[in-house]
Design a binder for these strands. Structure first.
Lengths: 158, 158
DNA sequence: CCAAGATTGGTGATGTGTCAATCACTTCGC
DNA sequence: GCGAAGTGATTGACACATCACCAATCTTGG
């Protein structure tokens, strides 16, 4: 698979491997930190972060899905598990009978407050502090280009 | 969570979001391409790639795990599923009674041969071709630094 | 008003990944 | 040789993600 078709140059090959490695290992590191400081998984943390940023610490399922860029059903499943662990609560929505509000519980709030500082520190330590300002800027450009290509790709009728 | 503790600068915030986005969307794009050309998932593809590179297209479970940097049990589960779909076969190992060889079947070989060119094209198109040589080089440096920090992190007694 | 269609959220099935435990075999120290 | 420890691989339980589908509700054109 390396000689027959034009695969990747050696350098590209190295970069690609490192990309795969990094994208595999970073979640592991973040998960480990979250577990050390709290009982949250990374997805739990994302949900609670999003909810914590709004007035009342609650949000409709669909809005949460849009904010996180998750599928609705993923939110639904995940919220169910989080509810079972007492991190959030579901409430009926007054204005729309179909709707559901996801509300952070006191326990959920405690968890994310315990987890957040270490999480921030870990992201900074692993990802940003070792980079120069120029590197951060360039990485940003590369990633934002990549993201926009990936979004097009995603929209694309197949 | 943004004002109280020193979280991330606005720029870092943006880069971080794009990182998360990119690492979420790229697998989706690769998966879509693989499904279009073959019946393989990305992990299937990784397994078959690794196996295809060695003499006899077969490997011990543990060696496969090391090559892919997967947990043994992940390999075991995954190989079982692939075996059910006729992509690989397990064989007893002659030299070590505990061991098992994972062998690519004819069907597995057909699948990866159908999938590989499109996969390579997709990686190049999305990841590399839009980047300048300098960007590739810099991305490479950033990633390899990140990977080595993550590896240390992973070793670290906790 | 009301039937048709869209939207919201949830469910079950399936595939995937981790962890802890287990089983079978090998190796090592005596 | 032989028991203890180590190693290779599998398993089961669970967390997570996606997909296809469904029920309830809302909205809208006639």
């Amino acid at each position: 698979m390396s000689a027959d078709s034009p695969w990747l140059t050696d350098e590209q090959q190295r970069v690609w491997r490192d990309w795969l490695q990094a994208t595999a290992l970073l979640p592991v590191a973040l998960h480990a930190q979250l577990q050390a400081d709290s009982d949250l998984s990374f997805p739990d943390f994302e949900v609670l972060s999003e909810l914590s940023e709004v007035e009342g610490r609650q949000m409709r399922v669909g809005d949460l899905a849009r904010a996180l860029q998750w599928e609705r059903s993923r939110v639904s499943h995940h919220v169910k598990r989080m509810e079972a662990r007492g991190l959030v609560r579901r409430e009926e929505c007054a204005s729309d009978g179909r709707g559901a509000q996801v509300v952070v519980t006191a326990g959920g709030r405690r968890s994310i407050e315990r987890a957040a500082p270490g999480h921030a520190r870990t992201v900074r330590r692993l990802m940003f502090e070792p980079l120069s300002a120029r590197e951060v800027a360039l990485l940003g450009e590369v990633l934002s280009g990549l993201v926009s290509r990936l979004r097009e790709e995603d929209e694309r009728p197949r």
